[in-house]
């Protein structure tokens, strides 16, 4: 970027950029640019925090979340509410409303952005079977306020 004006300064910049400057290309995937701190990448769901209230499902603009509730009868005769969440991640627009609506902070966003999948079915994030607490990605404990 020209920092100074004046013919001599600009000629120097031109020479420098022709002879010395390295290409601007980032050699991806060997090098990676780091997304900013508040970037909303792949969704991370913590089932231990979830209370199955369903506010995330109600507020999602893209109908991504489905809360599946089950009443199971325990051995002593009382009923317990359990369930799980299903995320259709190919519909998600990464707006962040689910993380904001959740009162327990069960939904957070990581910095992962390489989310392509070869087929539609693989986008289904079923929190019973999938390991959603991914240790490899950027562990960012600050949830969306």
């Amino acid at each position: 970027m020209p920092r100074r004006f004046g013919i001599a300064a600009m000629a120097m910049e031109l020479m420098e950029s022709l002879l010395v400057q390295k290409p601007a290309t980032v050699i991806y995937p060997v090098e990676r640019l780091e997304p900013p701190e508040r970037f909303r990448g792949r969704l991370r769901f913590n089932p231990d925090e979830c209370s199955l209230c369903g506010l995330c499902q109600r507020d999602c603009p893209a109908d991504v979340i489905k809360v599946v509730r089950k009443r199971v009868e325990k051995e002593d005769g009382t009923k317990e509410l359990t369930g799980h969440l299903e995320f259709e991640m190919d519909r998600c627009v990464f707006c962040g409303q689910c993380a904001q609506s959740c009162r327990k902070g069960a939904i957070t966003f990581t910095h992962e952005f390489e989310l392509a999948q070869p087929s539609r079915e693989l986008f289904m994030m079923d929190t019973r079977t999938e390991d959603t607490a991914d240790e490899e990605c950027d562990v960012d404990e600050d949830t969306v306020p």
Partner: peptide, 13 residues
């Protein structure tokens, strides 16, 4: 057809 919170994101787009 969507509630007020969902419409916020629809209008943004």
């Amino acid at each position: 057809e969507r509630n007020y919170v969902q419409d916020l994101y629809l209008c943004e787009r």
